Amino acid sequence: MDYRLGGPADAAAVAALFETSFVATFGHLYAAEDLALFLGGFGAERWATELADPALVFHVAEHDERILGYAKAGPLTLPVEVEGTALELRQLYLLADAQGSGAGQALLDRAMATAAARGAAAVVLSVYVDNHRARRFYERNGFKRVGRYTFMVGNHEDEDDLMVCSLVR
C-alpha cells in the first residue's frame, strides 16, 4: 500500500470510493430518496473543490494506482468544545478489499500527525452510534466519547457519537 496526499486530480476516484463505501456500510439504513439526496451532494465537482482547499488535507491509500481509502481532516465544524485548537477528522473511508489491511490505521496516523503539525491540541470526529467496529477502532486510538450529534442523511436523522482524542500528553 502506498500513501500520499490527495489533490484535485483524485476527485473522481474519491467520489466513487466515498459513494461505494458509504452505500456498502450504511445504505441499508435509509430510504432510497434520503440516500440519493445525501449522495447527490458529493459529486466529483465538490470533491475537486475540497481537494484543492488548503484548509483541508486528504491522505489517500492506494495500490497499483487505485485509491482504496482516504482520510479527510480540516477545521473543526462539530459542536465540541476543546481546550486549544482542534482538527476534525471529517471522514475516513476504505473500500471493502482494503479493510483489515492496516490502511485505516495508517490513514488515521497520518491525519493525527497532520493535526499535530498544524498545532492542534485535539482531534474531533463523529461516528454513527451503531458503527461498533469504527467506534472500537477510534477508542483503541485514544478517542473518548464526549456527546451526541445529529447527522443528516437526506431527511433522515442519525445519531452519531462525538469523540475527542487529546494530542497533549
Rank of each mutant, 00 (worst) to 15 (best):
Q91H: 11
I67E: 01
R118K: 07
A44F: 00
L56K: 09
R135N: 13
L107E: 02
A36D: 14
M163K: 13
E62L: 12
L125Y: 06
F38I: 03
T85R: 07
P8S: 05
D160M: 02
H156E: 12
F42Y: 15
V127W: 03
G154C: 04
K144T: 15
G100L: 10
L78G: 08
A44N: 02
E83F: 00
T77G: 09
F58A: 01
M1K: 01
A32K: 07
L78N: 11
V80P: 04
L87T: 14
L35I: 03
A15Q: 13
L162M: 11
P75H: 08
G142H: 09
E33K: 12
L76S: 08
V80W: 10
L94V: 00
V153T: 04
D10H: 03
A96E: 15
A36Q: 13
R148V: 14
V14S: 05
W47A: 05
S21L: 08
E19Q: 13
L78D: 10
F22M: 10
D53Y: 13
L108E: 01
A86S: 08
L162F: 12
R140T: 14
L51T: 05
V164N: 07
D97M: 12
H28V: 08
A71I: 02
G102M: 00
Q105S: 10
G119A: 08
A44C: 02
V82F: 05
D10T: 03
F18P: 05
L29K: 14
F137D: 03
Y70T: 02
A52R: 14
P54K: 07
E81S: 11
G154M: 05
F18E: 12
L37P: 02
P75W: 09
G69K: 02
L17T: 01
F22S: 06
E33W: 10
Q91M: 13
V168I: 14
A55H: 14
T20E: 12
Q91G: 04
A103K: 00
A96P: 09
H63C: 09
L29R: 14
E81I: 11
G154V: 06
M112A: 12
K72G: 01
G41R: 10
T150Y: 00
E65F: 07
L108I: 04
D160L: 01
V129N: 08
A73N: 12
D10I: 03
L56H: 11
A106E: 11
Y149T: 05
D109E: 15
D34L: 00
F42C: 10
A12E: 11
F151P: 03
R145K: 15
T25S: 12
Y128T: 07
L125D: 04
L108K: 02
E81L: 11
G147N: 09
R110L: 09
A98R: 02
R136H: 15
L92D: 00
E88A: 07
K72Y: 01
H156M: 08
V82A: 08
P79R: 13
T49R: 15
A121S: 09
L78V: 08
F22P: 10
E19I: 07
V153H: 05
E159V: 11
F151T: 06
Y70A: 04
M1T: 06
A11E: 05
R66F: 07
D2M: 10
D64H: 12
D53M: 13
F38N: 10
D161W: 14
L125M: 13
A71K: 03
R148I: 11
A73Q: 11
G74I: 03
A48I: 10
L125N: 04
E65C: 06
G154W: 05
W47N: 04
V80I: 10
